[in-house]
């Protein structure tokens, strides 16, 4: 991705940090927490993505097929990424949001300055439209502020108006409009 990406001049608001507990608009109790790295946590995310509606895929993610999902999760659930999950009372994961650095920590030189992070968010179809996505992205950005990240960016299909509206609501601004996908960016601090 282009290193000359534009970011808003002013930082976004201070977001609540996870864990965050609430009832969604259907009255279902949901907790948003940082990904804990446990085997149960990992397997529950695999289950969520294998059940993911192919219609809700964006630019090839989540990948299809269990092994592909596992490989992809191994790549984005590393310690240099920020991950939060939405968990039901019975422990099932029904949402996940992630911040992945442009350059992994292992390939960075000392003094490189702060890294920019790419954002993505996923909510299982049966749980969409109940306010979970808003809570999830706010908690992710709160976790990002807690981890002292500065710059976040994302791409979104330009016809995906609900997603674009959500990103704008939390402070993302459009940074590039000339390609297939809309690019948006936000400053955390």
């Amino acid at each position: 991705m282009s290193p000359d990406r534009l970011y808003p001049d002013d930082p976004a608001e201070a977001f609540d940090r996870p864990p965050v507990e609430f009832d969604d608009r259907e009255g279902r109790p949901v907790t948003i927490q940082r990904y804990d790295g446990s085997e149960d946590g990992f397997e529950s995310l695999v289950e969520m993505y294998v059940a993911f509606d192919p219609e809700d895929r964006a630019q090839g993610i989540p990948p299809t097929g269990e092994q592909q999902v596992r490989d992809w999760l191994d790549h984005i659930l590393t310690d240099d990424c920020v991950n939060v999950v939405a968990v039901l009372e019975d422990g099932r994961r029904i949402g996940h949001a992630t911040l992945v650095p442009d350059v992994p920590e292992s390939r960075r030189d000392a003094g490189d300055g702060s890294e920019a992070y790419e954002l993505a968010i996923f909510v299982l179809a049966a749980y969409q439209g109940a306010g979970i996505g808003t809570r999830l992205i706010r908690a992710l950005l709160g976790a990002g502020q807690e981890s002292e990240l500065e710059r976040v960016w994302l791409t979104v299909e330009r016809w995906n108006h609900p997603a674009v509206a959500l990103y704008k609501k939390v402070g993302f601004e459009t940074s590039r409009t000339e390609s297939f996908e809309l690019e948006m960016s936000l400053r955390l601090r």
Binding site: A58, Q59, G60, I61, W72, I76, A120, T155, S179, F180
Partner: peptide, 15 residues
């Protein structure tokens, strides 16, 4: 090309 978190984006020439 693929983005850091695995999204595919089409280059300007292909588009």
């Amino acid at each position: 090309e693929t983005s850091p978190l695995g999204k595919i984006s089409i280059g300007s020439i292909a588009e």
